[in-house]
Each structure stands twice: as structure tokens, then as C-alpha cells.
Design a protein around this nucleic acid. Structure first.
Lengths: 207, 207
DNA sequence: TCAATGGATTTTTCAGAAAATATTTCATTT
DNA sequence: AAATGAAATATTTTCTGAAAAATCCATTGA
């Protein structure tokens, strides 16, 4: 795994507390590599919103403010809803069956989460992303998908912290995902937006 | 001006042909500074979509493909329409008058463009951005605005090339901007989306 | 208490070289 | 003549160690 991916995973999975300082010396010890390479990656990660860069004051993990969560929630709803709208138009059986598959896998992982949260932590996140990505997979715009991933990843920071603090919030999530998928398969945009908004905003109001 | 801003402006204003290679040696001669700093900035600019990075093959100016233009157009319409929708709700007289002011300045610059395109080139771009930014200025989400700027800047690459190739396409643009502003002031979302789509898609179909 | 000061810490930049990879050149073979 | 492959060249990428610039912090003096 490249330094970029390693760093990114560690940031996403809550290895460092949000808002905490990322000191060069420490990073060098942890990841090896020289200052330049580390900086390059930190610069990239700040452009992607996972890291904050303050001029002459180095880098820190992006902070978890309520405002940012609100912004991220709104953007996710916007990008997923519009992406889904296009998928409704472009997507055929292929798209549908990939979506059903992703949802099945996700539902399975959510079952597993009740057994052992920490063991399936990473895998559940992976499946959750793949489900939400599948919704917009047929939107026909790579750039749209790229921005969605960026926003999703920032949102995930909040999810990880919430999950580590309060534990997996169980069957509600399963129902919400189910409702989202059903609306997508029915190509019912209004229902989709409502189900998705519910899914994300319920989370945002808890976190 | 920082190296980042200088580089960014040069890229945006078409100093280098789209798709052309950015060789380290050349950049060092042009901008000074050492390799590391240059790389940091190029990494950042590739995360923002103005530069393409190919592993082990260095950096090049982002290429102008029709697909990318289509994606960028769609995203601009999405972000500006949704941003405007929120502005309609949140924006008061303050927002309105800033919008009117931005439009007035833009219309003035578009008059100047008929006199001397190259002289007012940079200023017109500035005003065009400020107008489009003013539309979503009251959307209430800094992140939304940040992403919009990113998309706008990438779109601008195409505008600059088109403008340099065919010259300023005159009074059509003025009318389009006028229609967009009027719809915004009337808080008529459907009209707004239509006017904006027209404005951007007419351009996209020409370029 | 508050602000100024000076030393310690940290970030940022630098220059040059080494390592890794790409590209070109050119002789050889098919 | 076209294709192949190895050597030479060029370029990117990484590393090192250090200097420069900025920030942080604890102590001093008002």
C-alpha cells in the first residue's frame, strides 16, 4: 500500500483524533520516508478535505465541527440524489443487479456487526461505501463520482467517531438502506431523496 | 503572489497548452524554487483538477476532452442551481444587491471586451467568476462554494481556450447573464435552471 | 496581570545527489 | 524494411542534511 493510501486509511479510521496535530517528526517515525514525500501527501489530503493545513503551522487532522457535518450532509444528499436521478435514466439491469448485490453484502455485514463490531468495522465501511457508490454508478460522470467519493470520505470521519463512541446503531440503519434501495429500484426520485435524507440526517442529528 | 497562485493563474490563463508536459527543469527555471516545493504545488493542483499526474511520468496540464467538459458543465449546473435554490431561501436584500452589483460590473466589462479583448481578458474572467459566485453566495455552505469554485476553474480552462481561438462571443453572453440574474432575483428556480443551462450548454456545444 | 523578550521547537525551504523509472538510440535479427 | 532488444540518455522521484523562517513557550520586567 502506498504512503498515500496508508495515511488516508489511518486518518479515515480514526487513528488520530480529529483536530489533532500531525507533527513531521512523528509522522517520519511512523511511516518512514522523508519530509518532502510526507508533505506532498499531506498537501493532497488537505485538498481532499481530510487534513487541514495552516500556513507555517503545519498540518492537523480535519476537525469535526457541526457546521462541516451539515455542509457534508447537504452535499452528499445533493450528489447522491442527482447521481441517482441520472442512474435512473441510464442504468439498466446491470446497474440494478450491482445495486442489489451491494445491498445484499451490506445487509450481511450489518448482521455481522451485531456479533463483533471491531472485527467487521473496516469491512462494513467498505460495504457501506460500495452501496452508496452503486446508487450513482450509472450516473455517467466520472467527475461526479470522484467528488462524491471525496465528500463521502469526509462524512465518514464523523461516522467512524460516532461508531466508536456509541457503538453500531443497529437495525435502524438496515431499514434505512433498504428503503433507499427500494426507492432506487422503483426509480422513484422523491421517495429516494426522502429516504436518503432521512438516512443521513438522522445520523447527523445524533453525531 | 505565492508560487501556488502564480502557477494556478498561468495554468488557468492558458500559458501552457492543455495536455502539455510540465517538466521539472523548465518549471524550476521559470518559477525558481526547489523541486520539492514545485511538486507540492503540482500535487495540490492535480487534486483540484487543473493538472494531471501520471505516476513516474510527471505532470501535465489537464487535457480538454469533450467528456470532461460535459461532466464539468453538468456539475456546474447542479452546484449553481442548488446553491441558488438555497440562496433564494436565505438571501436577503444584501445578497440581492451584491448580485446586482456583480452583474453590473460584469456587463460593464463585457462592453469593454468589445473594445479590446486582450486588455480586459483577465478582468472579465474575474467578473464572470464573481457573478456566478454571487448567485450562490447565500447558499449557507462554505464547502459547497469551495467545490463550486473548483469546478468553475476547471470549466474556465475551456472558456479561455475558446476565447483565445474564436474571440469573445459578444452580446449573446450579456443576454444570457441578464436572464440568469433576472430569474435569480425573481427567485424562479425553474427559469433559473433553464437560463443557466442554456448559458453553459450553448458554450459547451461550441467548444 | 500583562506584554515583551529570547531561546527552543517546528515548519518550511533549499541544494545536490542517488535511486527508480521512462524514453530514445542504435545495432542486430527476422 | 520492420521488429527486437540492449545500451545510453533523460526524467522523475526520493533522500539527506542543513539552513532559514516562523511559531511556541516560559521567564522576566513593568
Amino acid at each position: 500500500m502506498s504512503l498515500y493510501e496508508t495515511l488516508r486509511t489511518d486518518l479515515l479510521m480514526g487513528r488520530y483524533a480529529p483536530g489533532s496535530k500531525l507533527r513531521m517528526e512523528t509522522l517520519k517515525e511512523t511511516y518512514g520516508g522523508s519530509v518532502n514525500v510526507l508533505r506532498e501527501n499531506l498537501v493532497r489530503l488537505s485538498a481532499e478535505g481530510l487534513v487541514e493545513a495552516e500556513d507555517q503551522k503545519g498540518f492537523r487532522v480535519a476537525s469535526l465541527t457541526p457546521d462541516r457535518l451539515r455542509d457534508l450532509t447537504r452535499l452528499r444528499i445533493l450528489l447522491e440524489t442527482d447521481g441517482a436521478r441520472h442512474s435512473f435514466g441510464n442504468g439498466g439491469v446491470e446497474w440494478e443487479s450491482n445495486l442489489v448485490a451491494a445491498h445484499h453484502k451490506l445487509a450481511y455485514m450489518e448482521g455481522k456487526m451485531h456479533e463483533d463490531e471491531t472485527a467487521h468495522f473496516l469491512m462494513w465501511h467498505q460495504c457501506d461505501y460500495e452501496f452508496h457508490a452503486a446508487l450513482i454508478a450509472a450516473c455517467g460522470s466520472g467527475l461526479h463520482q470522484r467528488y462524491h467519493k471525496q465528500v463521502y470520505d469526509q462524512f465518514r470521519q464523523y461516522v467512524v467517531v460516532e461508531l466508536k463512541t456509541y457503538g453500531f446503531r443497529g437495525s435502524d440503519i438496515v431499514d434505512e438502506h433498504e428503503a433507499v434501495m427500494r426507492a432506487a429500484l422503483n426509480r422513484d426520485l422523491a421517495a429516494f431523496e426522502q429516504a436518503l435524507s432521512r438516512h443521513l440526517e438522522v445520523f447527523a442529528s445524533r453525531a
